[in-house]
């Protein structure tokens, strides 16, 4: 891939990459760090892009992987021992079970939804990815995309109802 064309495409993608990152981490500074790491990795490994596929999906996937790697590093650094990549994604996937939620209530800055839900809603409802594409980007099973998008919309619809003062239906 042409190096300067790739850089231009990445710069065009920056607003959308920052938005995606903001569904994964809590602070704007962390999101920007993540975006920068992802872009530099994309530039470093242009051959991992499959011609004919969506460039944005490729960079989103790199960003998601960078986030997972960073999460793993933090957990090691924080003395929680080593965990492998699979476990790292399970830790986050654990918000599909209630126990994890109670212990660590992380909500994203844009929609105020529990971790993991906002990313799915962004990719499917806003970015227009299919369930299968979203599953590949987030490295989760397609069934998890289905359950998360249902939960995300339900929670959002409920909060909309509360904002209007009417409460949920």
């Amino acid at each position: 891939m042409d190096h300067s064309a790739l850089r231009r495409d990445l710069i065009d993608l920056l607003p959308r990459l920052r938005r995606f990152a903001s569904t994964l981490v809590a602070s704007a500074a962390d999101a920007d760090d993540l975006v920068q790491i992802a872009c530099l990795r994309a530039i470093e490994r242009p051959d991992s892009f499959l011609p004919g596929t969506r460039l944005d999906a490729w960079v989103f996937t790199i960003l998601r992987n960078a986030w997972r790697d960073d999460l793993r590093r933090r957990r090691v650094r924080d003395g929680q021992g080593t965990i492998d990549a699979e476990a790292a994604s399970e830790l986050v996937d654990a918000n599909d079970g209630a126990a994890h939620l109670a212990e660590r209530e992380v909500r994203d800055a844009v929609l105020g939804l529990p971790e993991g839900l906002s990313s799915v809603l962004l990719l499917v409802s806003v970015e227009g990815y299919t369930y299968a594409e979203a599953a590949r980007i987030l490295d989760i099973p397609a069934g998890t995309v289905t359950s998360r998008i249902a939960r995300a919309r339900a929670m959002l619809a409920t909060s909309l109802g509360e904002e209007r003062g009417g409460g949920a239906r």
Partner: peptide
């Protein structure tokens, strides 16, 4: 409606 709200905020 949830989609519309998500799109607005995003």
């Amino acid at each position: 409606a949830a989609d519309a709200a998500a799109r607005d905020r995003f």
